[in-house]
Design a binder for these strands. Structure first.
Length: 675
DNA sequence: TGTAACTCCCCTCCG
DNA sequence: GGGAGTTACA
């Protein structure tokens, strides 16, 4: 237990790791060894004799917490490190609520519904209350849920949220109020929680001084990663968890706060020293990831930022190669050029998994994915549409969820409407019948259903009955197999591409083999959904090499030797949806900063001159893009500019030349766009 | 009452 | 291109 392993740390990291009792804020710039510092801190605490199960490590993803715990275990060879309470706020909330939830009246055996389920429930409530968009437009289910979430997480009054964020929904205020009210009641009655509830109820539990004492008292130390992306409720939870014992370490980078759409507030990290007096602040500025020219760009991007802890990243890694700004004519050329460069880098010895293409929104990579497939370049995509959002996966899970929580109305609706001849009305009748019988499955056989659906209905009932009765103890995977036996024959009628869907279901069954109980399988899927389809297949084979495609959000915490940022044009980065308010724009700036600082050695930023999208809101549909406003002229000096010669197409060449002129004209108007 | 076909509108980021 | 809402028809 000597200082030997501490010698791997630089002085600031060591200061943080060996900090004694009391609050500690680590402001860690990108690539400055944040994960390392947290892992060492855990190892240090264990070595100091703190019991592993008395350490709470809150991270942004479960993968992150597992990584840190494994690393800590390696560092200090402490066998019990895996007993550390690690996970996301949501997952930890779920665990605690299952232990203490009864005290605040939570139904036992509650289940967690994902966003889509929550939306469906909201929609159900909306139609029941008669709010349709027939005469006056009414927000759709997704928007309604977003507004709800914003209200509960920021605690701003509905009126204010509408005024600030959703001015076009102002007229719906009364309706929304009633929907929220009914939605809340219904969740409780059906024993389901949505994501926000997990945090809310955790916080509510802590309102009782006694419970706060008890729950907070379980932990000698609390460590929080990515603190810049926590919201008001989360900050309050931490406050209440640390009323007596003030051992709390939060780590974050205000410059990487990119989750305000989840009501995260950069204020948390900026105000932490106020909330916890006598906080020690340690700043990490030495970057171990990138070569200096890349950091220069990152620093320059952040330089004009409004609110922040000032820090300047620096690196011992010098390089003569500047990052490159590549002008391409349009998206098609961007695809070609990116693929070319990836292959060149591969030939130069950079494996595909050390290369990543980053973009603002999941659909921005659609065309590129086609080109990659055409050239047979394998890739994994992170972020965007989740496996779990696929209709057939949801269908299958609905059956499992019914078994788990028979009062889960939404899952019943979903499952019943799959049957031929059963639509909303029949489903509703069956549900009313179920509700009357307190959701006892035994009431189902013999219930009159439309003749067309009798056969399938009988089958469904018998499968459910079996899985509740004699087959209750089967492993989850076998239960899925059983459900598949019933569900798969329905696929061809339900969807026009049943084959890939069938494969997904097999994958799901495979995945389930890793779980001991149905409960843990279902909750895990909701709370820690696979970030990419690759996650489902388990750890990749050693000889497999995949290019990484990722949204910038999902790239948080990752690093690659070569990074390609595509669609770095105004309207994409920054997103056109963020242009209305200054804070939104500031967040886009930080997002761009996150993207830039993922690169270790090579960074290329792609800037298409033309967009054919209709929805592109700058200029006309076929107009010219303006260079992203985060790359103002003074910054261009930090980049090597590369304009591709148009090949054999005079018109295109002409356009490129015209564009250069336009660039000159607009170069004086960086900053906020006039409305 | 269920469903297929048709139109219209809008489209981020995630646990 | 897809989801939500509407209409026509079985």
């Amino acid at each position: 237990m000597s200082a030997t392993w501490l010698d791997d740390l630089n002085p600031q990291q060591k200061e943080a790791v060996t900090h004694g009792d009391g609050p500690l804020l680590v402001v860690a710039g990108a690539g400055t060894g944040k994960t390392k510092t947290l892992a060492y801190r855990v190892a240090y605490l264990l070595q100091q004799g703190v019991q592993a199960e008395r350490v709470l490590l809150l991270t942004f993803t479960r993968r992150a917490s597992q990584e840190m715990i494994t690393r800590a275990q390696h560092i200090c060879q402490h066998v019990s490190a895996n007993k550390v309470w690690g996970g996301t706020f949501h997952a930890v909330a779920n665990r605690l609520l299952h232990i203490y939830g009864k005290a605040i009246g939570l139904p036992e055996g509650f289940t967690v519904m994902d966003e889509a389920d929550a939306e469906d429930m909201v929609n159900l409530v909306r139609t029941e209350l008669g709010f349709t968009s027939r005469e006056t437009p009414f927000p759709r289910k997704g928007t309604i849920l977003n507004i709800y979430s914003r209200v509960v997480n920021s605690r701003d009054p509905l009126e204010e949220v509408l005024q600030k964020e959703y001015p076009w929904c102002m007229e719906a205020e009364e309706g929304l109020r009633r929907i929220f009210d009914e939605y809340t009641k219904r969740k409780h009655a059906r024993a389901v929680l949505d994501y926000d509830d997990l945090l809310l109820f955790w916080n509510i539990m802590l309102e009782s001084a006694e419970l706060a004492d008890h729950i907070g008292g379980r932990f000698d130390h609390i460590l929080v990663d990515e603190y810049q992306d926590t919201n008001l409720i989360q900050a309050e939870i931490l406050q209440r968890m640390r009323q007596k014992n003030k051992n709390i370490m939060v780590v974050g980078d205000d410059a990487q706060s990119i989750y305000s759409f989840r009501a995260a507030t950069i204020k948390n990290i900026l105000d932490f020293p106020k909330q916890f007096p006598v906080t020690r602040i340690v700043t990490l500025e030495e970057n171990y990831r990138s070569v200096q020219p890349i950091l220069d760009v990152g620093n320059a991007v952040m330089e004009p930022a409004k609110y922040r802890y000032t820090k300047e990243l620096w690196s011992k890694r010098q390089s003569k190669q500047k990052p490159i700004l590549v002008q391409v004519q349009d998206e098609a050329e961007q695809c070609r050029v990116v693929c070319d460069t990836i292959l060149e880098h591969l030939e130069q010895g950079i494996p595909l998994h050390e290369q990543a293409v980053l973009f603002r929104a999941a659909y921005h990579s659609d065309q590129l994915e086609i080109e990659l497939a055409r050239r047979k370049i394998p890739f994994h995509k992170y972020g965007g549409l989740k496996f779990l959002e696929a209709a057939h996966v949801k269908d299958l899970l609905a059956f499992l969820r019914i078994l788990e929580n028979p009062s889960d109305e939404m899952s019943w609706f979903r499952a019943l409407e799959l049957l031929e001849g059963i639509g909303p009305k029949s489903a509703q009748r069956i549900l009313a019948h179920l509700a009357q019988n307190r959701y006892d499955l035994n009431c189902l056989p013999g219930f009159k259903v439309p003749p067309a659906s009798e056969d399938q209905y009988k089958q469904l009932v018998s499968v459910l009955a079996a899985l509740c009765g004699p087959e209750r103890k089967l492993p989850v995977a076998s239960q899925i197999e059983r459900v598949r036996g019933f569900y798969e024959p329905l696929l061809p009628k339900l969807y026009d591409n049943p084959t890939p869907r069938r494969r997904d279901l097999e994958q799901l069954e495979l995945m389930a083999q890793r779980y001991r109980s149905r409960t843990s399988f279902i909750t895990d899927l909701a709370l820690d959904p696979p970030a990419s389809t690759a996650d489902l297949a388990g750890p990749p084979h050693k000889d497999e090499d995949f290019l990484i495609l990722s949204t910038i959000h999902s790239a948080k915490g990752c690093e690659w030797r070569a990074v390609y940022i595509i669609h770095a044009a105004d309207g994409m980065i920054p997103s056109d949806m963020a242009l209305d308010d200054e804070d939104g724009l500031e967040e886009e700036r930080r997002l761009f900063y996150v993207a830039v600082t993922r690169a270790k050695d090579w960074l290329r930023i792609y800037f298409p001159l033309r967009y054919y999208h209709k929805r592109f809101t700058f200029g006309d549909a076929h107009g010219y893009a303006q260079l992203t406003r985060f790359l103002p002229p003074p910054m261009l000096g930090l980049l090597e500019q590369q304009t591709l010669e148009a090949k054999g197409d005079d018109d295109a060449a002409e356009e490129v030349r015209t564009e250069v002129d336009i660039r000159k004209r607009i170069s004086g108007m960086w900053g906020r766009r006039e409305p």
